[in-house]
Simulated assay, not measured.
Amino acid sequence: MITEILASIAVIVLILQHAARIPAALTELLNACQPLVHAAYALAATLDTADADPRDPIPPTPDQHQAPTGPPDASSS
C-alpha cells in the first residue's frame, strides 16, 4: 500500500517535471515548421499562376471526349 502511494507520487513528480518542458518544445516545433508552411504556400501560389497561363491549351470539355456519332450502319439493322 505504501509502495503504491510512493510510486504514484514519484510518477506525478516526473510527469510535472516534464510537463513544464512541453510548451517550450511545442513552440520550438511550431517555429521550425514555419519555413515549411511558407514554402508550401509559395508552391501553391506558383502552381496557381502556372495554371492560369494563357499560353496553356484549354482542357477539353467532357463533350469533346465522346466519340463522334455518325449515321447508323445499314448492317446493324
Rank of each mutant, 00 (worst) to 15 (best):
M1F: 11
I2C: 03
T3L: 06
E4L: 08
L6I: 15
L6S: 00
A7N: 14
A7E: 07
S8I: 08
I9Y: 09
A10G: 10
A10E: 12
I12N: 12
I12R: 15
I12S: 14
V13M: 12
V13P: 00
I15G: 05
L16D: 01
H18N: 12
A19Y: 15
A20K: 10
I22P: 02
P23C: 07
A24K: 05
A24I: 08
T27H: 05
E28C: 03
N31Q: 13
A32T: 08
Q34N: 04
Q34K: 12
P35L: 14
P35E: 11
V37F: 14
A39K: 15
A40T: 09
A40Y: 07
Y41K: 12
Y41F: 02
A42L: 09
A42S: 09
A44T: 06
A50T: 09
A50F: 01
D51Y: 02
D51H: 05
D51R: 15
A52M: 13
D56G: 05
P57F: 04
I58E: 08
P59G: 00
P60M: 07
T61P: 00
T61R: 11
P62W: 05
D63R: 11
Q64D: 11
H65T: 12
Q66V: 03
P68D: 08
T69V: 13
G70N: 13
G70L: 10
P72I: 05
D73T: 03
D73C: 00
